[in-house]
């Protein structure tokens, strides 16, 4: 087995453990590259049938291409798709006195309301006891401390100072009332592994990841996909996966550099993560 085979085998093992351990499992899906790898691995783990619903938290600031991809993938993979929007926040009703959006608020607040709170709402409605997420250790130093199975309390908080031990492929699968577990099968994957795997398996992904000419004549691509007002493309000529991989092997800027929300304030990620953001 090569490195990718090992990563795949471990992720499949984790997905199967998760499916066995939780009665009401759900897989958030952003349609980004990691998310699509998760779909693919789920197909492999369960011999073609994904036995849990897939959740898209729609911020209403989605790129149109992404929504197109969502519809295509829903049919292609026969997904049990849930689309969730925090309607109250967008409309400024209910507990909101004012409509929340990038036009009026800072990115950290918008991300919190339209993603984390939306997720909390759907968790409360559907009573999910575990979420399968696509986070990787190499994304950010705080994520480097994550576990495959990570408990979150009723407020969605991550108690990163007192995590249960995890070794020998034995995971925290029992939850206290109000808790849920984040299952993180891609933890060991690096960004370049994700690309190598997408290339090897020919996994369909949104085309925004590939370089296209911009208005100024230079070429750009998206390295990470978030809401359109805060996601900026990076200059790149990588128009296929091999070129992306080649580019990654020489760049040293971090993957989320294109996302405004991350460097809005010092340690923003840690704060967001502790509050329940994925």
């Amino acid at each position: 087995m090569d490195h990718l085979d090992q990563l795949e085998a471990q992720s499949v093992y984790i997905l199967r453990e998760a499916y066995h351990s939780f009665s009401n499992l759900c897989m958030p899906w952003s349609m980004g590259k990691d998310s699509n790898v998760l779909i693919w691995l789920s197909k492999k783990a369960f011999c073609g049938k994904i036995p849990y619903p897939v959740l898209h938290i729609d911020t209403t600031y989605e790129f149109p291409e992404m929504l197109e991809f969502r519809e295509w993938a829903r049919k292609e993979y026969d997904l049990d798709l849930i689309v969730k929007i925090n309607e109250d926040a967008r409309a400024g009703r209910g507990t909101y006195t004012q409509s929340v959006g990038y036009e009026t608020h800072d990115p950290v607040t918008v991300t919190h309301e339209l993603k984390t709170v939306a997720l909390q709402q759907v968790m409360a409605e559907r009573k999910f006891d575990a979420l399968i997420t696509g986070i990787r250790r190499d994304e950010d130093p705080t994520r480097a401390k994550e576990r495959y199975f990570s408990p979150r309390n009723a407020e969605f908080e991550w108690d990163y100072k007192d995590q249960p031990p995890e070794f020998w492929n034995q995971f925290t699968t029992a939850i206290e009332p109000g808790e849920h577990i984040r299952v993180q099968p891609l933890l060991d994957w690096a960004e370049v592994d994700i690309w190598r795997y997408i290339e090897r398996e020919k996994i369909p992904i949104p085309t925004m990841y590939f370089a296209r000419p911009g208005d100024d004549g230079k070429k750009y691509r998206f390295r990470s996909l978030g809401c359109w007002p805060i996601t900026k493309p990076v200059e790149s000529t990588a128009s296929n996966i091999s070129e992306i991989i080649a580019e990654l092997l020489v760049t040293k800027t971090s993957e989320r550099a294109g996302r405004a929300q991350d460097h809005h304030e010092r340690n923003a990620m840690q704060k967001l993560r502790a509050k329940g953001f994925m």
């Binding site: 490195h3 197109e68 290339e199 085309t207 091999s242 991989i245």
Partner: peptide, 23 residues
Amino acid sequence: MQTTLEPTKVPTSDISVPTSQKL
């Protein structure tokens, strides 16, 4: 930036990057 491509088509090339195990 507005060119839309078929979402299912992934451009590929034949430069393959070897994968190695990590210690």
